[in-house]
Design a protein around this nucleic acid. Structure first.
Length: 274
DNA sequence: ACCCAGGGTAACT
DNA sequence: AGTTACCATGGG
């Protein structure tokens, strides 16, 4: 299956390297590639025309890339706030993907108190050790294929203290205590509390899973960068124009502060009252 | 040697 | 309810 899409509010590079996913790579020819849900997807950004090629169905790809959503709506609303407007101008090519819950859960458990290059390395080793080999790489291992793993089994990942958390997550998914279809159907607060039953999952990791896997756009993960930004610009919370799409705003802001060398280069004159 | 990284837990006030 | 040391590992 091949899909061609217009470039409006879809920048593959921004989307893949804004910190929501860890498996996408830029190839030497400038294309992007990842193994998603067991099959390779290749994306080429040819000066405005984006081509998505994969053995996945069209429905799968439209869902994964959220192609039926008009991000211009979010950008228009957010742009009534000066700081968010600046973030949109920098990062509006980001789309929030619909990733596999199990992969997203383990990835963001790994992310805690960690940096993106090392998170990527640990996930690479997880796939290499436990994933299925297919043409061009390894799949992300299924919960079933990890059934019974202990923290010691995961030692080759060099995940540190997070190994026991990963083992706990695998165990609870396989026992049925964590059932993704149930979580998907829950309102945000209940879904978050359910995920937090897993050891090593707190508010931030739970919200990342709810946003990046279940596409609950009202989830608002607050990492160290976003916390700093909130203290600086929004001490009383996000402005109303983000209502219902806090997660999208969060991702634009996160990318904006990180790709501008932190808060020092963000224009403080943009600060406004709510 | 020290600090930090898409945090969470347990043990304190 | 709100703070704080500690948790493994690797890069700056």
């Amino acid at each position: 299956m091949k899909i061609k899409v217009k470039k409006t509010n879809f920048d593959p590079k921004q989307t893949f390297f804004c910190g929501q996913c860890f498996r996408w790579r830029e190839l030497e020819n400038g294309a992007f590639s990842a193994i998603v849900s067991g099959k390779t997807i290749t994306v080429t950004d040819d000066c405005g025309e984006i081509e998505i090629a994969s053995e996945h169905t069209r429905d799968f790809l439209e869902n994964y890339f959220d192609l039926k959503t008009d991000y211009g709506e979010y950008i228009r609303k957010f742009s009534t706030d000066p700081t968010l407007k600046a973030a949109c101008e920098n990062s509006s090519g980001i789309r929030i993907l619909r990733q596999e819950p199990f992969e997203t859960l383990l990835s963001f458990i790994i992310s805690q108190n960690n940096n993106i290059p090392r998170i990527t390395g640990i996930i690479d080793r997880l796939c290499g050790e436990f994933g299925k080999e297919i043409d061009g790489g390894h799949t992300f291992p299924s919960a079933e294929s990890l059934r019974g793993v202990t923290a010691e089994d995961l030692a080759p990942l060099r995940a540190g203290f997070r190994a026991k958390y990963l083992a706990d997550a695998v165990s609870r998914v396989n026992s049925g205590e964590i059932e993704f279809s149930e979580i998907d159907a829950m309102p945000l607060d209940k879904a978050r509390e359910r995920l937090k039953q897993i050891k090593g999952v707190g508010d931030k990791v739970a919200d990342c899973v709810l946003l990046f896997a279940f596409h609950k756009l009202d989830a608002f993960p607050k990492d160290v960068w976003v916390k700093r930004l909130m203290n600086e610009f929004y001490p009383n919370g996000l402005p109303k124009c983000t209502e219902g799409a806090e997660g999208v705003a969060q991702q634009y802001l996160f990318d904006y502060v990180r790709n501008n060398g932190g808060l020092n280069n963000v224009d403080k004159s943009l600060t406004v009252e709510n």
